[in-house]
Design a protein around this nucleic acid. Structure first.
Length: 542
RNA sequence: GGUGGGUUCGUAUAACGGCUAGUACUCAAGAUUUUCAUUCUUGCAAUAGGAGUUCGAUUCUCCUACCCACUACCA
């Protein structure tokens, strides 16, 4: 029984999106469950699509998620370049392994499984357009290779001259004709494909001295003793070629088992969640914020305030389910429960609402202390001065109402600064005043700066009535003559309408018609601050 | 076009071939609350369509439809 070894092999062509993170996660869970190794390999065989910073981004993203590679990346987050005891297969960057691949490509030529091809880009272009004009699709395989410029169609002398004289040739796999390839996928079961519809894939490019994905992937998986290949569904069509490559190399006995994961689909419409969807969908598709070469920034789950544990949890449930009704899983629980058998076959549409729900669940699991620390950072950034003990009290009061730490600010801003503006006060005074559009609409009283031009017409019409109402006087009287824990009974004893007086007071204290409990606010900000805010309202609205 | 894969409430999903097709998110209603939120209760909502096998099909087979992927000297 071989030790389980799986790999995540991203191409550094840009930031890793959440589908990629999920693939890495499933590989990691699979490996850890079996006490095996999780390996990172960088597949940068396309020099034209290399994006600076992408490799670092990928590694940092995985680290944020708590996905720690056993091999390929060292403790400093660097891709290992020199072999050592812990990383015996270094380098783990394919561009640094180029010397390895050519011999394998040549081996395939020698065994008759591959051949040299000298067709120029223009020749191929021509062949394609010709076929297209005839209403067909050009496939470089048994049906056409006889008419192309390759080693199958020339004598050895010509071949030698061509190989030496030209630098733009390739080595192509000689896809057999009419052979049924029988494959087994850990998720999809048995699949059969006839090779006649497949093409002679380029395996090695003389121009770059580099292999293409297919060759590099099979060679490295073999050399690195990979036991299972868990990758995206988009690779399923390549599986017959990969099977045939293993066979051509004579590596069938150690060929890894394959599992093709369902795609992550965009929430609306059809199609897979792609890097390009970015911010226009209104939620992050990247684990971490990313700024491209053009200076355009895409948001990330980390920067949006997601807990990494929540992100991992929601990703794990996108395509996999435990078969029970449990939805909240720690990484350790995932490692224990995960199984490829329970991975679905159909693509999963991502639901941003559910993602928020996951974060809310995790926010509640956080300790008050760690939330307070996070909130302190936000407050400092807003230059709101405060002390830790006070912030801790605020957290205790608000954590049930928030999905993200930054929500706490929206909920509890009135505990730190006095309102300068008032909203939705028609609700406060009930039917006596003009009803505003929607009382339940969330309002941030501090979002607006004091702006006479924008608000005065409305204020002038209704506030006069409101301010002169009995509720303001009652609220002022109640604050003056009671404490936080007695204000409710004080108002009741006076025989007043509790709701209206309280909401009038609420307006003075918070600037809005809904929110935290009045006595809780009073307790925290103190009686004097309450009186000050009532006085400010009188001045502002009077 | 060709090849392959897929299809259960709006979304994620559950259901040895066998209870009234379950759960979560969203949404709606009610209870609670000074308000909002929370919490609790209730509700809306699905097996793509058609054949076949079977006592019985969401489940197995075939056909149709639709969706997706692949079809590069990209991964």
């Amino acid at each position: 029984m071989r030790k389980t070894r799986v790999r995540f092999a991203p191409s550094p062509t840009g930031p890793l999106h959440m589908g990629g993170v999920r693939t890495a996660l499933y590989n990691y869970l699979y490996a850890k469950q079996r006490g095996g190794d999780f390996i990172i390999r960088i597949e940068d065989t396309d020099s034209h699509r290399f994006v600076p910073g992408a490799e670092e981004y990928i590694i940092e993203s995985l680290k944020w998620c708590g996905i720690i590679p056993d091999e390929g990346v060292d403790g400093n987050g660097k891709v290992v370049e020199q072999p050592n005891e812990k990383h015996p297969h270094a380098p783990y960057r394919q561009s640094q392994r180029r010397s390895i691949y050519r011999q394998y490509a040549e081996q395939l030529v020698a065994s008759g499984n591959a051949y040299y091809a000298f067709d120029s880009e223009e020749d191929l272009e021509l062949a394609r357009s010709k076929a297209e004009n005839a209403g067909q699709t050009f496939i470089y395989n048994h049906s056409t290779r006889g008419g192309m410029c390759n080693s199958l169609n020339m004598d050895s002398g010509t071949l030698q001259r061509m190989l030496e004289a030209r630098t733009d040739w390739t080595i192509r796999f000689k896809m057999p004709e009419n052979v049924t390839v029988a494959m087994d996928d850990l998720i999809r079961g048995h699949i059969e494909v006839n090779t006649s519809t497949l093409d002679d894939k380029v395996l090695w490019k003389r121009a770059d001295e580099l292999p293409t994905y297919h060759l590099a992937n099979i060679v490295d998986d073999h050399l690195m003793e990979i036991t299972e290949v868990i990758r995206g569904e988009e690779w399923l069509p390549s599986l017959p070629l990969h099977y045939l490559l293993y066979k051509a190399f004579g590596w069938e006995d150690t060929m890894p088992r394959f599992a093709h994961l369902p795609l992550l689909l965009k929430p609306v419409g059809n199609g897979k969640l792609s890097k390009r969807d970015g911010d226009k969908l209104g939620f992050p598709v990247f684990p971490l914020q990313w700024t491209n070469a053009q200076g355009e920034t895409s948001r990330g789950y980390r920067e949006d305030g997601y807990f990494p544990e929540a992100f991992v949890n929601l990703l794990a449930l996108l395509g996999w389910n435990p078969g029970t009704e449990q939805e909240i899983f720690s990484m350790d629980e995932l490692i224990k429960e995960f199984s490829l058998e329970k991975v679905g076959k159909a693509g999963a549409k991502f639901n941003p609402e559910k993602a928020k729900w996951f974060n809310k669940e995790y926010l509640r699991k956080q300790s008050d202390e760690s939330l307070a620390t996070s909130l302190m950072d936000i407050l400092n950034a807003k230059r709101v001065k405060c002390d830790y003990d006070y912030v801790l009290k605020v957290v205790k009061l608000t954590k049930e109402r928030a999905s993200f730490v930054k929500d706490i600010w929206d909920i509890a801003a009135c505990l730190f600064i006095a309102p300068r503006e008032y909203s939705d006060y028609s609700v406060v005074a009930g039917a006596a005043f003009t009803k505003s559009a929607d009382a339940s609409r969330p309002v941030d009283p501090r979002a607006k700066v004091y702006d006479d031009n924008a608000t005065k017409p409305f204020l002038a019409k209704d506030v006069d009535k409101f301010y002169k109402s009995e509720f303001y006087d009652a609220a002022l009287d109640a604050v003056q003559n009671s404490e936080a824990d007695t204000i409710e009974s004080y108002i009741r004893e006076k025989g007043l309408n509790l709701g209206k007086v309280m909401n009038c007071l609420r307006l003075a204290l918070t600037g809005a018609a809904s929110g935290l409990g009045i006595s809780d606010i009073m307790t925290l900000i103190g009686k004097q601050e309450c009186l000050d805010r009532l006085a400010f309202m009188k001045q502002r609205l009077g």
